[in-house]
Design a protein around this nucleic acid. Structure first.
Length: 260
DNA sequence: ATTCTTGTTGAATG
DNA sequence: GCATTCAACAAGAA
């Protein structure tokens, strides 16, 4: 389930496992995910080591000592597994073996993830039209960004070129927590609603990240977990409804989130 | 068997 | 130029 909180989790995971360990070999069981040649990947990676992991939106950058970045996008089903196992787990698309024999496996059953090499994080983000990270926004910036947007608030929140990191599920969650109908036009939001939405955006992303890291389940009043038409609303006695917005299944409670 | 899905991209359309 | 919808990508789940 890779939106911003899940990528934050993998950043921590890499930080605590795969840094400062010399890369001995590169393995590419599923070449289509790697957006460069295998030879290129080997040349840039073998012999170096990662110094830190940086998350931006739904991307994770592993910075190596030689100044390059190995970049992961997790698609819908990507995940990491760091272990000393010799056999790659099922659906491993790519992995690195380190000097001490440990391995970082990138597992991607649906093969919708992507792996890149880049020399510049900023250039990479520009090339891929990735906006500012959701957690880097100030309230004012958020306000100004939404002010000029057309279309639905849900569309704006999930547009990676505007705000990086928010996906389908947590966009629904923020709107539910704020009591805003997903189809609302951003220009119809009151100043108060935009303020609240900003606060809930940060709160939802941080809460989910924290709970993921600690293994706790999400708060009882969260919509996530009740994503099913007809489910009981966790906040009122309404029933959850689903509608397609921008092609994505959008869940909301018509009692809590009134259409304007 | 059919439909659904947390993600992105590109084409077609309004 | 903008926003939306749809299809495609792929494979597991229901």
């Amino acid at each position: 389930m890779p939106e911003l909180p899940e990528i934050s989790y993998y950043k921590k995971y890499v930080d605590s496992t795969a840094l400062h360990n010399k890369i001995r070999s590169v393995h590419v069981p599923v070449p289509k995910l790697l957006q460069t040649s295998e030879k290129d990947a080997e040349e840039h990676l073998i012999g170096t080591e990662f110094t830190k992991a940086i998350r931006h939106g739904k991307y994770l950058f592993l910075e190596s000592k030689n100044g390059n970045y190995l970049v992961f996008h997790f698609g819908m089903t990507g995940k990491f597994d760091f272990s000393h196992e010799d056999d790659p787990p099922k659906y491993t698309a790519f992995y690195l073996m380190f000097e001490d024999g440990a391995k970082l496996f990138f597992i991607c059953p649906r093969k919708l993830g992507k792996i890149y090499l880049t020399e510049s994080k900023d250039d990479f983000l520009k090339e891929h039209s990735i906006g500012k990270d959701a957690l880097d926004f100030s309230k004012d910036e958020f306000k100004h960004l939404l002010y000029k947007k057309r279309g639905s608030i849900k569309g704006a929140l999930t547009n990676q070129s505007l705000i990086a990191g928010i996906g389908n599920m947590y966009a629904d969650e923020m709107l539910f927590q704020t009591g805003i109908h997903p189809k609302t036009s951003p220009s119809d939001l009151s100043e108060d609603e935009v303020n609240q939405l900003y606060d809930k955006m940060i709160e939802v992303l941080e809460t989910v990240s924290d709970r993921k890291a600690s293994g706790e389940s999400l708060p009882d009043n969260y919509l996530t977990g009740h994503r099913e038409p007809g489910a009981d609303c966790p906040k009122s006695n309404g029933k959850i409804e689903m509608m397609k917005i921008s092609g994505r299944s959008t869940y909301f409670c018509p009692a809590c989130q009134k259409e304007k």
